[in-house]
Each structure stands twice: as C-alpha cells, then as structure tokens.
Design a protein around this nucleic acid. Structure first.
Lengths: 218, 218
DNA sequence: TAGATTGTTAATCGATTAACAATC
DNA sequence: TAGATTGTTAATCGATTAACAATC
C-alpha cells in the first residue's frame, strides 16, 4: 500500500529541526528515551503538539514509555532528508566564508562544504579548511560534476545577485544568502536569507516594551 | 488619553521587520509611495494581512493613494525601537567575529558594534574594523560603562555557555548566539540562535519531496 | 496491578483572508 | 466625477491544546 502523503502543515516541518536538535543533545547526553513532556520542555513546545506533529508521519513512541531517542532521530532525519550527505558550494573565501567552512553545525546534519569559489586571484589556489579555493570560471563545471544542490553566498553585497544568478543557472536548488541584499531567484530555486538582524529587530520590540513597562512600574 | 497597548499577535511583530526591509529597498529605489498590494507582492504577504497588521498600531496610509514610504519606515522603526542606536558587544575576534563586525545589515538598522572581546593574547590590542580587541577581563566594566544591552557570541562552541553566562551576568538583555550549541540563559534574557542550518533542514524536506515527485513523474 | 505516557479526537483559540464601505 | 486603495468587519480557515481511551 503506497503512502499517500497529504499536505503537512508548514509549522510542523518548521518544528522538526528543533526537535531533532534537542534529540541530538539528549543522545550526546546518553539518554535512551524521552517523553513528549520532557522533549516539549527542552524545545519549548507544548507536549500535545509534539505528539500531534509526529502523527503526521506515523507513530514512533511507546505508550507508557515515551520515545526511543535514537529511533526518533533516525525517523526525523529520514523525513527531512538529512539522513544522507548534502554537498554545498561555498562562494566567497573571505572571513565569512572561512567561518562557514569550519562551522560545526553543518557537518552535524550531514552538510559538507564540497567546493569553494572566489574571484580574488590571490585567494585562488589557497586553502579553506582542506579545500582548494577555485576561480569562478570553474563554478558551473564543478557544480555539475559534483551534483551540488545547495549554494552558499558569502560574498560582498554588490556581488550577491550575480552569484545567485550563476548558481541558479548552474542547477543549484537551494541558496543560502549571507548578505543583507534581497536577491531575486528564478522559479524552482528556494532562497534563504540568513539575516540575524531581522530576528534582532523582532526582539527589539519586546526589549523596548519591557523598558517602558519597567519605567512605568517605577 | 493614554494608548492602552493590548496584546499584539507574535506573527505581526515577526512580519514588521520584513515590511521594513522591503520599504528600505523601495526608498533606496526612490519610490515615494507604495500600496499594500505592491508591498505584499515584494514581502510575499497577503495585502489584506499587511493592512490588518498595521491597524494594530494606527492608520498610516491614505485611501486611494497608499502608504508614504518614508513615513511608514519611520513608524515601523519607532514601533520596533530601531529608530535609535543599539550598541552590541561582540565576543570572539576570529573569522566569524570579523565578518560580523563588517556586516552591513547591522548598521542599516542602527546596530553598532561597540566593543570586541577575545581571550587570545595575540589578538588583544589588535583591531577589528576600527575597534581595539579587549581582553575578557574588561567585559563587565565596558558593558556597564557603555550601557550595552545586546551581546553577540562568536566564539568556539566549547566557550559559548561560559560567554553567555558572563554576558547575562553583566546585564545584557539579548544574546545572539552564532554557535550551534544550545546555551542556557537566565530568566529575562532573550536568546537568539542564528543557526542557518536549522532553516536548511527545513528546506531539505521540500527538496526531497520535489525529487520524489520528479522521479515519480518520470 | 497501578502508573505512565502515547495516539487521537474534539473543542478552543487565533490568525488569515475576503469583502466592502469609507474616502482620498 | 471615477478610480484607487485604505481601514475594518465578518467569515473562513487552520493550528493549538485539552482531554482521555488505549496500551505499554
């Protein structure tokens, strides 16, 4: 019987990585099982919601016991597709590029930086981690050859759009944009702007409200 | 008559920074006004929702005309509190720290890196941008003196928790954590994990679904 | 067996959207 | 005036949560 995958609410998919993160931590901690109550506490999500979310994909727990940490990790990784390796192309070998290449969070989830590109002749041929920096001329060829589906933009803002264009044209499906520029991408390419400032602004709202409340309570 | 600020839905506050980003782009473009239809197109939000969101704070548009870009920018900046400067303390003067210090997205919204700290004696006294790198001994004193409310953690993962503790104890209200470690913070401190991998995982779900769909459609 | 905790239903809650009168 | 577009209501939609029978 084929599994008919009906629509899964966006919110569910957004929470799965958060659950996964907590589960990986529990595993590192040596915990064999976890209840939805504990998981909810750690991920700051209502326990009922966790159970509800998981039912979209099956039933992974045991009544009276909870969830086996290792099993649930594997199930979620399978659902997300992070149970196999994903190759990234990193464009930009500056400070930011170097930091991304050595970022532990990537390898933890099966992402590996597979090629690094830059325009600067003084950087080409040098090493980032243990990868040689390639010139932009090699971009299309290497992306095809290595079957890279994810591109990371870590270049100066003024170059962001043209890099996005090149990566999209080369067949990359997902772009991670580290510049504050709102780049345009063609249909079929998913863009992620990793602008932490956006989040900071959001927090600022609550920060200033708190100050107001505090001074009113004087 | 005092404005009684009732509860504003979280989602509204999350969207304001997105509107602001688009508006700043429109202003840079020289557009004097914008309709909710156009704004919605650019921010990928339903126009009715934009109008609804804004009514929580007042009525900023003109019927038949739209919104004055400059006015709406000022209003949203005032609501969020980004109409004045916010000082950041940056801990970690490595590649990542250097990249953050020169990140254009920060200054665009009134955030300025006001002090940089590191433990490495070979870095202390050196410059990041035009700021001297200070030793960790100076952390509490400088944060108090400069009235810094926001801390940025750009250190190796193993140091993340202790840096978070020091910053929290020094009176910082908001932490931006650039490591993949889930750090714990005391009550009253807001933590933001800027883990783009979380988002990548989320995208991966749709990416693998698309591959399945594509191969089934073969 | 008694206690714990899931999977699942049904109720609640809140957010999104369509529609339209007000008005520029 | 006619056309455009807001502000706001009311209807829809979907997501969250409480509750509890099933079951380990």
């Amino acid at each position: 019987m084929a599994e008919v995958q009906v629509h899964i609410p966006e919110g569910v998919i957004e929470r799965l990585p958060a659950y996964l993160n907590v589960l990986l931590q529990l595993r590192a901690n040596g915990d064999p099982t976890v209840s939805s109550a504990r998981l909810g506490e750690l991920a700051r999500v209502n326990p009922a919601q966790i159970r509800r979310d998981l039912t979209h994909f099956g039933s992974f727990g045991r009544r009276g016991i909870g969830y086996d940490v290792q099993t649930l990790i594997e199930r979620i990784q399978h659902i997300l597709g992070s149970d196999h390796v994903h190759r990234l192309a990193l464009v930009g070998a500056g400070n930011l590029g170097s930091a991304i290449a050595s970022y532990a969070g990537l390898s933890k989830h099966g992402f590996i930086v597979s090629a690094v590109f830059d325009t600067d002749p003084s950087k080409i041929g040098g090493l980032i981690g243990d990868l040689p920096v390639l010139g932009m001329n090699d971009l299309e060829r290497v992306i095809h050859k290595q079957g890279i589906a994810i591109g990371v933009i870590a270049v100066p803002p003024e170059a962001a759009q043209s890099v996005a264009d090149r990566l999209s044209a080369a067949g990359v499906h997902v772009l991670l944009n580290y510049t504050p520029v709102m780049v345009q991408v063609p249909e079929g390419v998913t863009l992620h702007n990793t602008d932490p400032v956006q989040e900071l602004l959001h927090t600022l709202y609550y920060l200033s409200r708190r100050e107001v409340v505090a001074s009113e309570a004087r």
